[in-house]
Every structure is written in structure tokens, then in C-alpha cells.
Design a protein around this nucleic acid. Sequence first.
DNA 1: TATTGTTATACTCTATAACTATA
DNA 2: TATAGTTATAGAGTATAACAATA
Lengths: 158, 158
Amino acid sequence: MPDNSPERLVPVPELADRLGYLFKHAHSRLSDLTSAALAPLGVSGRQLAVLLVIAEEPSGSQLGIATRMGLDRTTMVTLIDDLERKGVVERFPDPSDRRRNVVVLTSQGRKTTRQGAALSEQAEKSFLEPLSEGDTAVLRRALRLLAFPSSFRTRSAT
Amino acid sequence: MPDNSPERLVPVPELADRLGYLFKHAHSRLSDLTSAALAPLGVSGRQLAVLLVIAEEPSGSQLGIATRMGLDRTTMVTLIDDLERKGVVERFPDPSDRRRNVVVLTSQGRKTTRQGAALSEQAEKSFLEPLSEGDTAVLRRALRLLAFPSSFRTRSAT
DNA sequence: TATTGTTATACTCTATAACTATA
DNA sequence: TATAGTTATAGAGTATAACAATA
């Protein structure tokens, strides 16, 4: 998307009620804020997401990480390539099943993950600045229900 | 994104609180529903959006349409190419400024636009099915504020 | 000179198919 | 045979640079 700054202000009336359009532009604004916030660390939002999954799954395989993120295993290859080149992860064959690659954070990787999580939280905060706390809570819950409808009870919101 | 069906159900705990992740997956689910709904018409959601803008701006130029959609003018070229090939739009040089291409809907294009709008509304409806009406209203307003923050008064929501 | 459409090119994100090593 | 990782390739969606026609 072209930046259209300083006029990112232009909700086209005939599209402003279409959810797809709103999702795209809202997501794009969040991405811009997040990229900017993470830039000093040299990782993208997508790469940070990978780091967060690895941090939570300390000896996961590439396939395991990909599956948890909803990505293809071929996509994960270059993602890990890049992170390895940056020095934030290491990979080596699992001794107990040499088909698998175990992926672990380096100590620098742990630091990057910690700092990245904090920076991206700040970016989220400024992204959400136009909303009240109540609306933010509703938004989060709504997004969870819409993204993963079958994983929740249908206790509809108030 | 791989479909991961029937388990699109998998909100990874370490990512489920990240807005970027939720936006991506919610948007992806909406896109899937919309594509499926529009498939009989032979147009994508993106192409329908172009048709809607043209319908609203009956003698717009390619650049005008692109700008209104937040796209680049080079992106619009192939978008219009495809729509012209499908027979839903026509383009010709503006007699009063022959640098511009005027883009208009054909009669088939008007029909496709009308039907597409209805079908994609149905898709939105089933997408939103997990939410109450109240939450849906909050979501729509929140997305508008988040996507185009500077175009609204900062009357924060209740 | 500036603007519109176009072409060529490239980058990101993603997938499918096919290969290799291992099980 | 089946699985994990890899490579090659392709297809959306998008942008930048450069060019032609027109203003």
C-alpha cells in the first residue's frame, strides 16, 4: 500500500463500510507502527512472532513452529535462515530424530525477544490510542472470536 | 496461509494477544468467506472493491480510482486490464484530457457490482455470526477509528 | 515541466511439487 | 512408506523507475 501520508485520512465512503477494507487499512497502520518500533532491533513483526513461539516452545522443530504459526514448513525455512543469520536463533538436528531441526534462541535472541515484545506492546498501545479502554477490550475479544470462531464457546458478548 | 482446516481453531497462546496476529487471521477468514461467496460471479473481493468505486464515481480516471482505493496507479493498470477482459468495465481516453482514461461499467458490470455487493454482504454476515449486534457495532466503529484515526473527531467510544 | 498511463522490474509473503536424508 | 527439511518455482499484491503521450 502506498503510504498516502499525510492523508491516510481518506476512508472512501463507498468502501468505508466494507469490513475487508477496514481490516486491511487498520492492519496496515498497525504494521507500520510495529515496524517502526522494532526497527532498532533489526527484526520485523513477523520475525518477532517466530521468536515468541520459539521462546514458548524451547526445543521445537521447524515444522512445529510453522504449524503453531499457521504457516507452511517451506515458509519457515527462510524465516529461520534469516533469524540464524541475525544471530538470534541456532538450529541443529535433533539427536533423537535426525530428520528434525531443533531451533533455539541464542542469548542475544532472548534479549531481542524480550525487548521486541516490549516495543511492539508500545506500538500496539499507540495504535489503540483512538479507542477507549472498553472498546479496546471489546475489540480484542471480537477479533479472537472472528479469527478462531470454533475455539470459543458461543457466549456472545454484552 | 495454509488453511489448517478443520483446525483453524488454533489460537497459539503466545500470539493470541498480539493484535497483528488476530488481525491477520480474522482478515484471512473473512477473505476466504468472501472469495467463496463471489466465486460464482468470477470476481475477487479486490475486483469488486474496484467496481464499487467506479460505480460511485461514474467517469473517474484510473488514477482517481487508484487514489481513492489507496493504491498505486501502476497497480490499477492490471486491475483494470483484468476487469476489462472480463467484460465488466470499458476504458477510453477522456476527450477533454487525452492523458486520462475514463473507466466505466458495462451493463454486465453493473449487474456484477449489484450481485457482488449482495453476496459479499452475506459473507460479512456469516463472518460476524459469532458476535452480538452490539459488539459488531463497536467493532465497526473501532476499525474505522483505527484505520483512519485522523479523519475522525476524538470522541472516544463508550 | 508536470501528469497519466504503461512497461519493466523487484520485493514480500505465501504456496505446491519434487528432492534428500532419515525414520 | 512416511516425515522433516530443503530447493525451485510460481502466484498474489504491491511498489519504484523510466518512458511515451499529452497537457
